[in-house]
Amino acid sequence: MSFCVISHTADVALDISATTKPKLFEEAAKGYQYLLLENQECHPLEDYIIQLEGNDHESLLVKWLSELAYIFETKQQIACDFKVLALKNNHLRAKVGFAPYDPKMHSIQKDVKAVTYSDLKIEKTSKGFKTRIVFDI
């Protein structure tokens, strides 16, 4: 399981791989958190259940990461602990631990403005699944 930051001329992308699709979603969220904070510490204080509907797993992945970005921008809460509880063809249910954003403690590294569908495909590999996701920053 891993994520890796990939150079993109104007924006930034993450290569993500995991043994299962729920873990792929968790890794993607960790990658998003890395873009935001790199290696700064972040300890969740409150858990929330997030439920999303989508056309397929790719659209659920975009919605999942968009949800975390929306919560950060509007509620100033940084998502930092992730557990996918259920993943079906068009439904995602996950438990997310959030920490309040504190400008004195957290220096935001990348302002993730949106999550794109650019060339987005979740592909099966010999070890599980992989995908690449491009963020608008």
Binding site: S59, K63, T116, D119
Partner: peptide, 20 residues
């Protein structure tokens, strides 16, 4: 609207080489 357009692609049977 990107999300809505994913549904529209199916509804209007439009092929795109990149979902964006």
């Amino acid at each position: 609207f990107l999300d809505k357009m994913q549904t529209a692609l199916k509804k209007y049977e439009i092929y795109v080489p990149d979902r964006q």
